[in-house]
Amino acid sequence: MEAFGKYLTEQIFIWDLLRASKYPLILTALSMPIAVCFGMVLALMRMSRFKVISWAAAGYIEVMRGTPLLVQMFLVYYSLPTLGRMLDTDWLTLNNFTASVVCLSANYAAYEAEIHRAGLEAVDRGQREAALSIGMSERQSFLLVVLPQAFRIVLPPIINDLIAMLKDSCLASVLGVPELLTTAAGIGKARLNLEEMYVAASILYMLMSLACYAFGKWIEKKLKASGTPELNLEQARH
């Protein structure tokens, strides 16, 4: 046991890895809420009856989903400042951490938008009509009736993306953010134990993923306190 403790601290520098583990968590904790909110805006734009708005959202979603996140990161970090100089502004010069958050949020927002759209469309049309029929406005029926039900439907796929983002956050290493993968690789290269360091980092990523999964399950369980729309359809069918 003591030997294992020694191995953890002296061979793979577990404390450095744990300290670096805060980056995946912070990057994800910042980016995912932004992605989910921005994704909702995109989904509503996508479903807009105004063609121009709908197309703009569709274009954004396709570009973001269709190009590599890594390329987006390079462009935001290295090319935006150039554009900023041409426009004579500092606003487009982002530090590596901010650039990572911007890219992760902007990229994942495209995926979340499609999840939100599917979720909103999955809520039975009759729910909106029932809300309207008691005199609620479109806005009230959306916020009080449709959205809470859509939220239950989209939660599992969003948790799925949360876990994906946690691991994609390692791409921030290419911009020089001292996150888990950068740290592990740095130690591995210096101590010539790169495989061990990669395995150790992977195990930490997996533990964090499991924590996200457990977090998702917990929220789902809290929401399960009352029924789900799918059940409603089942019952109404007979």
């Binding site: 729910q127 029932a130 309207l132 008691i134 009736v145 239950r152 009352s226 729309p229 409603n232 109404a236």
Partner: peptide, 16 residues
């Protein structure tokens, strides 16, 4: 709509 109540074939109660 406040003055005209409606009952639907599929109930449409709010399940949440």
């Amino acid at each position: 709509r406040r003055r005209v109540g409606m009952v639907f074939q599929r109930f449409n109660l709010f399940p949440h």
